[in-house]
Design a protein around this nucleic acid. Structure first.
Lengths: 214, 214
DNA sequence: GGTCTGACAGACCGGTCTGTCTGGTTGCTC
DNA sequence: GAGCAACCAGACAGACCGGTCTGTCAGACC
């Protein structure tokens, strides 16, 4: 789980990249530990000492790269956007469906598989938003990443030729978030229920002239 | 639950005694403070010292009535179930609609008003579940209270003569929870979007012989 | 009057939190 | 070899955490 692009901001000073043995190594280990711990246990429940121990890094090294814990959480959210939103959900859904409509509905197939993993950890953006509050900088950042998810949905809706794609994406997102909470409660079939409602939503946003052909 | 309305400004406790009703007074003040603080800021963000100060109670008194902070949180969840679930949502929705179907849909009218309050605090059961985790006793308790909400929905669905009421209630609950998260993000129209999808859900759960009469 | 209960006030405990700082080590560059 | 940058290890500071405990006081009951 190396970081392809997100983050890397703090360490890239004016060194001409002559050495990479321990250059980004510490940052990567910190981010790996952060991803593992934050996504599973939340923000406040994970202390800096745990992150230090898990990543095998000195405390000074930690604070050199991330001046505060919140800075690390911001980097974690960016990483989560790449690993979870993009790589795990959207890309997978796009691969599973042939048409944009199928790709949209495939999101809930991906959810179905995801819900059944015993290490299912829910949506970090929702978690952080509710844990920190919408006024907190981390809550605001989470709202931004949730909006990015809606952007992906809207993009797919436009590819599918649906109408009123922004409202479509907002309604769709309600189904995604609601099913995630239900799955957290233990309802592994929540993805199927949401998918059924999602198909009705697609019907309502199809153009009037467009036939119902597959 | 001992607090019927949970009003009672917290500052009116410095009276020079003189009354015998100090019996449950301390408990009520603690619960009032807990409701105010827990519902707005979460569990871990509220310390015992804050609860002590807000309720104007001695620490020993606090721990006499609630042997641990978690015990108080459990009492808070029970209080939230009464004040929020029953009194604020279900009863209000029942009063707003004439038929059971109207009462069901009125839930999202109540949500619409609730979402617009500037002190909108989302759903404490979801908050606690996500904050503490589903394995934690408080998370499990929250799951139980969420199931109670589904029970109210299923009850209304049965009164409306709908079919497969348990699955109906689970799908309906997805819409409720998803719209709450969206409202937390700032989408005050989330209640309308959910209500639209909810009406489709009702249609799909009506008996086949039943006409579409209003 | 004596006793008991429950409330208040607040010191205090061990532990954890975020964040700072010192000291020693490694490895690259000049 | 000197300098330097980044690393590891860990003590330390100051705040806060949940929870315990001592002590004082007011009212109820015998």
């Amino acid at each position: 789980m190396s970081t392809p692009d997100a983050s890397e901001a703090p360490g890239s000073s004016s060194l001409p990249a002559g050495q990479t043995t321990t250059r980004d190594d510490a940052v990567d280990r910190i981010l790996d530990a952060a991803y593992e711990l934050f996504s599973r246990r939340g923000i406040r429940a994970v202390g800096v000492d745990q992150l230090i121990e898990r990543s095998g890094v000195a405390k000074a090294t930690f604070y050199r790269h991330f001046p505060s814990k919140d800075d690390l959480v911001l980097a974690f959210l960016a990483l989560r956007d790449q690993i979870w939103t993009v790589d795990l959900i959207i890309s997978d859904a796009r691969n599973r469906g042939n048409t944009p409509e199928e790709q949209l509905l495939a999101i809930f197939d991906v959810f179905g598989d995801w819900f059944q993993r015993e290490d299912f950890e829910a949506c970090s953006f929702i978690n952080v938003l509710l844990e920190m509050g919408r006024e907190h900088p981390l809550g605001k950042a989470s709202i931004g990443y949730l909006a990015r998810i809606r952007g992906h949905i809207q993009e797919l809706a436009e590819e599918a030729g649906l109408e009123r794609t922004e409202e479509f994406a907002r309604s769709w997102h309600i189904l995604m978030k609601g099913s995630i909470i239900s799955a957290t409660e233990g309802d592994v079939l929540a993805s199927k229920r949401a998918q059924q409602m999602a198909s009705w939503l697609i019907e309502q946003h199809r153009g009037p002239e467009r036939p119902v052909t597959a």
